[in-house]
Simulated scan of single mutants.
Amino acid sequence: MALLRPAATALILILQLFTLSNAHNITKILAKDPAFSTFNHYLSATHLADDINRRQTITVLAVDNSAMNSILSKGYSLYTIRNILSLHVLVDYFGAKKLHQITDGSTSTASMFQSTGSATGTSGYVNITDIKGGKVAFGVQDDDSRLTAHYVKSVFEKAYNISVLHISQVLTSPEAEAPTASPSDLVLTAILEKQGCKAFSDMLKSTGADKTFQDTVDGGLTVFCPSDAAVGKFAPKFKALSAANKTALVLYHGMPVYQSLQMLRSGNGAVNTLATEGDNKYDFTVQNDGEDVTLETDVVTAKIMGTLKDQEPLIVYKVDTVLLPREIYKAVKKAAAPAPKSSKHKPKNAVADGPSADAPGADDDGEVADDKNGAVHVMIKGSSVLVSAIVWLCFGI
């Protein structure tokens, strides 16, 4: 029996790992109380539920059906309702106990509205104040810091992970209630430049691909924007490409469908891009390792660093490297055994355009689909193999 204990412990740890990957589900939590059915419905309709579920630490300030009527009666668009409800999702943990232990009795914390791209300055911050008589009040910082709602009760708590608190009124602010542009009115290049992706925006304009991206917005568009630093490093190789390959490479950074981060996590596998046409696949593989999501092109592996804009049907992510398609660059062959120490000499990998646009060298960011997370990928994909191995350890079969 003593021999079985280490293996049994390992099995428990692995099962816990898989359980943690599921995180929480705000829709199921709120569905237990019909008093929050309207609030719950709009969290799903605006896709805020997906954003909440992917967070490790979050507080949701839920309002009941009667309180929701205060904003629904004003005829706001779904996009404006999303901004308003974003104020009710705090990116920190506040359980009932913590509300009454706030240092100096008052604090200000960021909401998800702060990261929408619509908030300016501190307009996406919520003030929480522990007032006399054991009551706790809430107000939006850009609304003259007026405390317009108070704490009613705790709905659900999982310490330091997720807290759902019932508050008395909807939190509103002039910025959150401002008319929000419909998808057809969104100018993608302006959004990219505002969110720190000017270099990629310039690539779109220079190739004329910005029109293709813009025309796709209404039907659903997911954009993967490389950081300015990544585009700057790649610029010499980009200039060496032909006009056709420049356009194809830029289009490779867009998917003609809206894909939230939760969707990307649950739908791992090959995906088409705006460059996909006929026999030209121009696809890449979406993979995840816990909270991290990567895009594997067979030439480079890019990691999603954050969400810059999420206004369905448009979502823009920032990635840490330029996506290089195998249709232009030769795919990197992964060695079965550890390769010898690399020399300073760069391999002569020809490009579809010719030798002037060689595949990135070993000292370039993201040259190879980094396999340092391979063990984790194998463990997640082959969970049945791992469990079988532990059963073998336990029972010797």
Rank of each mutant, 00 (worst) to 15 (best):
residue 124 G to S: 01
residue 305 M to F: 08
residue 396 G to C: 00
residue 68 M to F: 09
residue 333 K to R: 10
residue 65 N to E: 06
residue 106 S to T: 15
residue 74 K to D: 05
residue 226 P to S: 11
residue 309 K to I: 12
residue 52 I to S: 02
residue 171 L to G: 06
residue 154 S to A: 13
residue 378 V to Y: 13
residue 6 P to M: 10
residue 300 V to H: 10
residue 357 A to Q: 09
residue 231 V to Q: 00
residue 44 S to H: 00
residue 284 F to I: 03
residue 225 C to F: 03
residue 104 D to V: 07
residue 319 V to T: 05
residue 200 F to T: 04
residue 162 I to P: 12
residue 86 S to T: 08
residue 368 V to C: 11
residue 363 D to Q: 14
residue 156 F to I: 01
residue 297 T to D: 02
residue 217 V to Q: 06
residue 221 L to W: 10
residue 366 G to S: 11
residue 289 D to K: 15
residue 50 D to G: 01
residue 200 F to Y: 02
residue 98 K to C: 01
residue 310 D to Q: 12
residue 134 G to K: 06
residue 126 V to K: 08
residue 171 L to T: 06
residue 282 Y to C: 01
residue 164 V to M: 09
residue 388 S to C: 10
residue 306 G to L: 05
residue 357 A to M: 10
residue 295 L to E: 06
residue 62 A to C: 08
residue 188 L to I: 14
residue 186 L to Q: 13
residue 74 K to L: 12
residue 57 T to V: 13
residue 1 M to E: 13
residue 185 D to H: 12
residue 295 L to M: 03
residue 159 A to M: 13
residue 204 L to F: 12
residue 169 Q to M: 14
residue 14 I to M: 10
residue 173 S to R: 03
residue 257 V to P: 07
residue 139 G to F: 01
residue 394 C to H: 01
residue 61 L to C: 06
residue 263 M to F: 14
residue 209 A to M: 09
residue 318 K to W: 04
residue 339 A to P: 09
residue 280 N to L: 12
residue 192 L to G: 05
residue 165 L to R: 09
residue 80 T to N: 03
residue 204 L to P: 07
residue 277 E to I: 13
residue 391 V to S: 00
residue 283 D to V: 10
residue 369 A to M: 11
residue 212 T to L: 10
residue 388 S to W: 10
residue 57 T to Q: 07
residue 268 N to A: 15
residue 4 L to R: 12
residue 370 D to L: 00
residue 65 N to P: 06
residue 102 I to W: 00
residue 70 S to F: 07
residue 378 V to S: 08
residue 143 D to R: 08
residue 277 E to N: 15
residue 145 S to M: 11
residue 217 V to C: 09
residue 233 K to W: 05
residue 77 S to M: 07
residue 53 N to V: 05
residue 181 A to P: 01
residue 195 Q to S: 02
residue 20 L to H: 11
residue 350 A to D: 15
residue 227 S to C: 02
residue 27 T to G: 02
residue 259 Q to D: 14
residue 331 A to W: 00
residue 205 K to P: 09
residue 340 P to C: 03
residue 251 L to N: 06
residue 19 T to D: 14
residue 382 G to Y: 05
residue 71 I to H: 08
residue 75 G to M: 04
residue 336 A to L: 13
residue 88 H to Q: 01
residue 222 T to I: 11
residue 390 I to T: 02
residue 383 S to F: 12
residue 43 L to I: 01
residue 201 S to V: 02
residue 105 G to Q: 04
residue 260 S to K: 11
residue 124 G to L: 00
residue 227 S to F: 03
residue 337 A to F: 09
residue 194 K to G: 03
